[in-house]
Design a protein around this nucleic acid. Sequence first.
DNA 1: GCCAACGTTGGC
DNA 2: GCCAACGTTGGC
Length: 151
Amino acid sequence: MNYWLVKSEPETYGWHQFIEQGRAVWDGVRNYQARNNLKAMQLGDQVLFYHSVTNPCVVGLATVVRESYPDPTEVVTLSKDGVTPKPTQWVVVELEPVLALENPVSLAQIKAEPLLANMALVRHSRLSVMPLTVDEFELILAMGQKPVGNE
DNA sequence: GCCAACGTTGGC
DNA sequence: GCCAACGTTGGC
């Protein structure tokens, strides 16, 4: 079992849309490090869903329901001979929602927590798919399920 | 809306 | 292979 965090801009694809659809094809990732993380995801892995840009916070928990396969949104390009398609290089996974956090865990809270200081979210703010340690994962989940005002 | 950080591209 | 220019992401 592995633990991950994925980012999405709520204006583009937010948690509520994810809930309505009940399943998401996590496409459009165009960064090698993030892609390698997608490839490493396994069925049943736990994935925190993070809203970036607007009120940045972890809003929910998802799980991997299909492992990586070529990204259908990738534009197919041809090799120099003009005939052979280049192998696709980007991948997607499919996710399903598990639960919404009662209290979204803000980036400010994460930054204020010394145990979370090593997260890629803090150290490499532009990475959109990142691994978490089990401790980081469980701590954020616990923070998100505490009653309001009890930090 | 601004800006810093980072990744990618292209000229040399 | 280096580096400047540029585009994008994301925090504030």
